[in-house]
């Protein structure tokens, strides 16, 4: 899995926007262009031939590929149609697809991710804010101003919480290399391990910050992986310490069921392999300062 350059995307990435003529699609296409992303095509069935922010719009992904050769796509497509849009993008040869949409049926997500694996492509999300390689390329919906270049790689399940932490880091004088939003759903294209593997290889990244939350076993599996495969320092912040069991805390994945996925279990697993665990978000920059000094 993965590309050789930077992590997942870089300044050479040619981005396609599916659903570019919609409200969200056009707004975020504008924001991504403002960040410097190389958006080369939009797709909106029935709207081919138009332009949005000078980006040519096509009826299908295949038509977009024939004319503009994009290699990554971001989808602003309603949940009921997201599977079709994602399969279309993968079929047309995209190597990275970013699925912003929340509420995609889990059976649909499984099909998309399975197809992506067989196509050697990466699915970011679903229910993600996207991915940004600082000053190179942003494919997502996050606020532009907080992603300044630097030595810290961030991988997060949650959007706004990662903004909080990235902004705190920036305030403290630290920029980020790449920030990856895994997404809030229970089935995701990327897990912590996939991203840790890339950060370990990435020469720009000196420190890795994981932003996790209760539920599932992704953090525990990450800890197991870190033990033997990650030499760079890792800081983790986990949300949901005070969440009651059996209640889904917004994200489909964030639920403590049958005593699994608890905060304490995750902290224990991570600390056992040398990961520094922050109790509150604002402690992350303090820990980064200690490590990067």
């Amino acid at each position: 899995m993965g590309l050789v350059m930077a992590i997942f995307i870089d300044e050479k990435t040619r981005v396609m926007v599916q659903g570019i003529t919609g409200n969200q699609g056009s707004f975020h296409a504008r924001q991504m262009l403002a960040y410097g992303s190389n958006i080369v095509a939009g797709v909106s069935p029935g709207k081919g031939g138009r332009e949005v922010e000078n980006v040519p719009v096509f009826d299908t992904a295949e038509a977009a590929v024939a004319a503009q050769e994009p290699d990554a796509s971001i989808l602003f497509v309603p949940a009921a149609f997201a599977k079709d849009g994602a399969l279309e993008a993968l079929s047309a040869g995209m190597k990275v697809i970013v699925m912003i949409t929340e509420g995609i049926p889990v059976h649909d997500a499984m099909e998309v991710i399975d197809y992506a694996n067989r196509k050697n492509a990466v699915v970011v999300g679903p229910n993600t804010f996207g991915i940004v390689s600082s000053n190179k390329c942003k494919i997502g919906i996050m606020p532009n101003q907080i992603y300044v270049g630097g030595p810290i790689g961030v991988v997060a399940r949650s959007g706004t919480l990662s903004y909080e932490i990235v902004a705190n880091l920036k305030e403290a004088g630290y920029g980020t290399s790449t920030v990856v939003g895994m997404g809030g759903d229970r089935i995701l294209g990327l897990n912590f391990i996939n991203v840790l593997e890339e950060f370990e290889k990435d020469s720009q990244t000196e420190l890795i910050v994981m932003v996790g939350e209760i539920g599932g076993t992704a953090e525990e599996e990450a800890a197991e992986y870190i033990k033997n495969n990650v030499s760079k320092p890792v800081i983790a912040y986990l949300a949901g310490k005070s969440a009651p069991p059996g209640k889904r805390m917004g994200h489909a994945g964030a639920i403590i069921e049958r005593g699994k996925g608890t905060f304490d279990g995750k902290v224990k697993a991570l600390e056992a392999v040398g990961v520094k665990v922050a109790e509150l978000p604002f402690q992350v920059p303090e820990m980064a300062k200690e490590i990067l000094r």
């Binding site: 997060a156 399940r157 949650s158 959007g159 706004t160 919480l161 990662s162 909080e164 809030g184 932003v211 939350e213 209760i214 949300a239 949901g240 310490k241 005070s242 969440a243 805390m249 917004g250 994200h251 964030a254 109790e279 509150l280 978000p281």
Partner: peptide
Amino acid sequence: NGAGMAMATLD
């Protein structure tokens, strides 16, 4: 705004 942020706020 955001599930992770809401959880962090409770914490």
